[in-house]
């Protein structure tokens, strides 16, 4: 294809709108960057992968129910919403979106268009982080709601009223939303300090969030999932009722010692859990913003090194 031979126009005289610098606003720059970053998440093959991940728990629930009509909704809820989603889906979504906040722009060589705009680099990072968080949160919430629908739809109130289930779903969304906030902070920071963020992120998810969180030692206190589990255990009532089989299963699976302490009073309180998750997100994203503001971002120039 040859470019168009349209004659070049005489450059127009400056209008007050274009000549003045007073019309520009940092807030508008930031809002545009946020929308641009969200738009980037909607394009490319990654979108198909994350959508498939999002639908996976719902599909599993549908398959289970269609093959086993007597499958207990409570067990499915535990297995899918409180095990698979926080341990698999949330970290992966956060990893996919947050790890590429800057790396994707560097790889696509489009970061130059951002670096020459009047947005401080730390702010650029935080805005792009917020966009990554938004994308991950939307998909995580969609996964939770769809999974609840797949588990409980058509159970005719046997598992509680619609309001009750909606409340459970809301609590699950809130707790998982906090977890994904922390995950996005961690993986965003990781994406700045390492080139192999996907490999390291998966190792982190498997080792830290998978292995350490499932040990009965204090080591698990450095994992995100530990605090999310404590909140789920306490906030979702039928799991917290001592004596129920599902309760002891939950406690056993998550290695909570409930003998003499059925409400986990010896464990970090709910406000501590929320504070830890929020602080993790704030600390990691602030640190990443600081790193970003002092970092040079190299962009390969074509066929050469200068």
């Amino acid at each position: 294809m040859t470019p168009n031979p349209v004659p070049v126009q005489q450059l127009p005289a400056k209008t007050p709108q274009t000549a003045g610098k007073a019309d520009v606003s940092l807030a508008r720059s930031c809002w545009t960057l946020y929308r641009l970053s969200l738009g980037q998440h909607r394009h490319g093959r990654r979108w198909i992968g994350t959508l498939a991940l999002t639908l996976l728990p719902m599909l599993i629930a549908i398959i289970i129910r269609s093959t086993d009509p007597y499958a207990a909704p409570g067990s499915m809820e535990f297995g899918l919403v409180f095990m698979l989603i926080p341990q698999g889906l949330l970290p992966l979504l956060a990893l996919v979106y947050a790890s590429g906040i800057i790396q994707d722009e560097q790889e696509d060589q489009t970061i130059t268009y951002l670096l020459v705009r009047p947005i401080p680099k730390w702010m650029m990072y935080l805005i792009k982080w917020a966009a990554a968080l938004t994308a991950a949160e939307i998909l995580a919430m969609a996964a939770i709601v769809l999974t609840y629908a797949a588990i409980f739809c058509g159970t005719h109130g046997a598992s509680g009223s619609f309001i009750h289930l909606a409340e459970r779903c809301l609590v699950a969304c809130t707790v998982h939303g906090l977890a994904i906030l922390a995950y996005c902070g961690i993986f965003g920071l990781m994406g700045l300090v390492t080139q192999r963020v996907l490999v390291i992120g998966i190792l982190y998810t498997a080792l830290f969030e998978g292995l350490f969180a499932n040990t009965p030692f204090n080591l698990r206190m450095i994992t995100v999932i530990y605090y999310a589990r404590l909140l789920i255990y306490r906030l979702l009532p039928h799991h917290a009722k001592p004596g129920l089989r599902v309760h002891s299963t939950t406690a056993n699976t998550w290695k909570f010692i409930t003998a003499g302490d059925p409400n986990l009073k010896l464990y970090p309180h709910n406000w501590v859990c929320v504070t830890v998750l929020l602080s993790t997100a704030i600390f990691t994203s602030a640190l990443a913003g600081w790193i970003c503001s002092n970092r040079e971002f190299y962009v390969k120039t074509p066929n050469k090194t200068d």
């Binding site: 709108q17 274009t18 019309d23 520009v24 606003s25 940092l26 508008r28 720059s29 545009t32 960057l33 641009l36 268009y113 951002l114 705009r117 009047p118 947005i119």
Partner: peptide
Amino acid sequence: CAQLAGLNARA
């Protein structure tokens, strides 16, 4: 790019 530079949508 113009909006990233701080211009409003119309400008």
